[in-house]
């Protein structure tokens, strides 16, 4: 009955399989990914209508507007991170794999970021131009988003895991997660602000990098623990 050679459980192969699985699933449900992206665009486009079409005003608020919209968009996409797996029982199976759960969580978060974070980064120059940012500021904006959005996905994964199967989970996750996003917001927008007013911004980027390293080390453990609590 036993089939095939059983190799040593290979963590890397499992890790890759998890990423491939989640990317394949995202490809087959492209509409979900696009929804988040359009949300991002629409939120940013509301500001000229709501605040002022004056380019000087827009340029000043642009980093904050784009960052806040990215925060909201990334939070909106958190619902997809675990809840489908929770519904169809694959999350249960994931908890019973002979691999450290936190490592698999990291793979899932990475896949989630590739699908929901990277498009925001790629789209941000367009929105930056709409809001009158100049070339250097736009590149910096992209850089901060590139460093910051993975942190959002990592922190968000804890909230997504804690609110699995909870009534009103979608709104609840925003209450849990948004306050924790604040440092990323401050330094993400701070870097662009500093650069446009001719100040040093390397420090901000290093800090965002430090946040990323810390979040990558700590949040998978918290998310794994949260998943075990939520699946009970």
């Amino acid at each position: 009955m036993s089939k095939g050679a059983i190799t040593q459980p290979s963590l890397f192969a499992a890790w890759r399989a998890m990423i491939v699985r989640d990317l394949t699933l995202a490809m087959r449900r492209r509409a979900d990914v696009l929804t988040t992206l359009f949300f991002f665009i629409i939120v940013v486009s509301l500001f000229p209508l709501g605040v002022s079409p004056e380019m000087a005003v827009l340029r000043e608020i642009a980093p904050g507007v784009i960052w806040v919209a990215a925060l909201l968009a990334s939070m909106l996409s958190l619902g997809r991170l675990f809840s489908d797996d929770y519904q169809d029982g694959t999350l249960e199976q994931m908890l019973l794999l002979p691999q450290p759960l936190s490592v698999l969580v990291l793979a899932k978060v990475l896949a989630h970021w590739l699908v929901s974070g990277v498009p925001l980064v790629l789209l941000s120059p367009l929105l930056g131009m709409q809001l009158g940012l100049d070339g250097d500021a736009i590149i910096l904006m992209m850089l901060t988003l590139l460093l910051g959005t993975p942190v959002l996905s990592l922190i968000g994964s804890v909230g997504a895991a804690l609110t699995l199967g909870v009534r009103g989970g979608g709104v609840l996750v925003s209450l849990l997660v948004l306050p924790l996003y604040i440092p990323v917001l401050i330094f993400g927008t701070g870097a662009v602000d500093a650069a446009t007013s001719g100040m040093e911004f390397e420090g901000h980027l290093s800090l965002l990098g430090a946040f990323f390293v810390l979040a990558a080390l700590l949040t998978p453990l918290a998310t794994a623990a949260a998943l075990r609590i939520s699946v009970e």
Binding site: G4, T7, Q8, A13, A14, A17, Q93, L97
Partner: peptide
């Protein structure tokens, strides 16, 4: 995918 996650390397025929 399940087999890769479990850490087994089976060929597609299996």
């Amino acid at each position: 995918i399940n087999n890769a996650l479990c850490g087994r390397s089976l060929v597609d025929e299996q």
